[in-house]
């Protein structure tokens, strides 16, 4: 199965199906994950999109897709996927469309929609066992409007609406667990900077039926405040520090696909981002840094037993 196709980075496709010319920011971690994903899914797909940065992928008359696309609204992309999926099934059933014209239905939303406004429509789509793939590009804030905090924003991050000395007071919502609690066939976290792990998961997901949900951690140079060239490095640091666990939920179990043996201190990850700069200057905020570290440690302690 999937493990066989992508054994090493050498096996990754280099088709580069998603073409350039989009208005996404230079160094966009979400676009990076998307193009890696698209190479695996292929062009027999219809992306059903919710309001977010990626809405601007297709601006009349320009589209980077070699397959299809439908923009819906912020809250209801999974419902749009429902309509498309059902219609395709009906057409095939009625022999009004040859099966080879079928498309894989892929929802594409940011964390604003996934963690918040669209959570109810996603939950319901899982309830209905809709056969679809959901990709959330998680850049931990409302990126398209200038990075205000969302339910995906991590504790203490400075955003356009949490500018105080302690940053965002809340904690990043555990969407993975919320999704997994619905017991769908597949849930996984990925990041573009770990392309092999990503490829294996996307392939596994596309071989399954029913609701399959992916959260793609998406370093955002503009919203997080770092040089675009560090985009991949920050993704890697998120994994190495244990801030972004790579895992999957399948057959009722959560499996960590990459356990960082010796975790890099979270501050290595934090200090390269403008949104956490207030933790280091003008004065080091030991309390907040320790709190963030302690939460990461507690998570992994539980994982490692």
């Amino acid at each position: 199965m999937s493990e066989e196709t992508f054994k090493s980075v050498k096996d990754l496709p280099s088709t580069r199906l998603l073409c350039g010319g989009t208005p996404m920011c230079s160094g966009c971690g979400a676009l990076e994950a998307l193009h890696e994903i698209y190479d695996i899914l292929g062009k027999k797909t219809v992306f059903v999109n919710a309001a977010g940065c990626m809405t601007l992928l297709s601006i009349y008359p320009f589209t980077p897709f070699r397959g299809s696309w439908l923009y819906t609204a912020m809250a209801s992309a999974p419902a749009g996927a429902q309509g498309v999926r059902d219609a395709l099934d009906i057409l095939i059933e009625k022999k009004q469309m040859p099966p080879e014209d079928d498309l894989q239905v892929v929802v594409l939303t940011g964390d604003g929609a996934a963690y918040g406004m669209g959570l109810s429509s996603t939950s319901a789509a899982i309830d209905r066992e809709l056969d679809f793939l959901y990709i959330c590009y998680d850049n931990e804030g409302y990126g398209n409007t200038g990075q205000q905090f969302s339910a995906a924003t991590p504790h203490a991050a400075k955003t356009a609406t949490s500018k105080g000395p302690r940053g965002y007071p809340g904690y990043k919502k555990d969407l993975f667990s919320i999704w997994a609690a619905h017991k769908p066939p597949y849930v996984a976290t990925v990041v573009g900077s770990e392309p092999l792990d990503l490829a294996k998961k996307i392939e596994k997901a596309s071989e399954l039926k029913g609701p399959r949900l992916i959260i793609a951690f998406s370093p955002c140079p503009t919203g997080w405040g770092f040089d675009p060239k560090l985009s991949v490095e920050i993704g890697k640091l998120a994994v190495k520090s244990g801030v972004w666990p790579l895992k999957e939920y399948i057959d009722g179990k959560v499996i960590h696909t990459k356990i960082p043996r010796k975790r890099v201190p979270v501050e290595e990850y934090l200090k390269v981002q403008g949104r956490f700069s207030h933790l280091f200057s003008p004065k080091r905020n030991e309390e907040l840094i320790s709190e963030i570290q302690a939460r990461v440690d507690a998570y992994w302690k539980e994982v490692e037993g």
Binding site: C19, G21, P23, T63, P64, R66
Partner: peptide, 18 residues
Amino acid sequence: SPAIHAEATSEQIKTGLW
């Protein structure tokens, strides 16, 4: 209708200029 009946047209946008 606001639809693009083609693929990969964004290639025409030369983002190299950024």
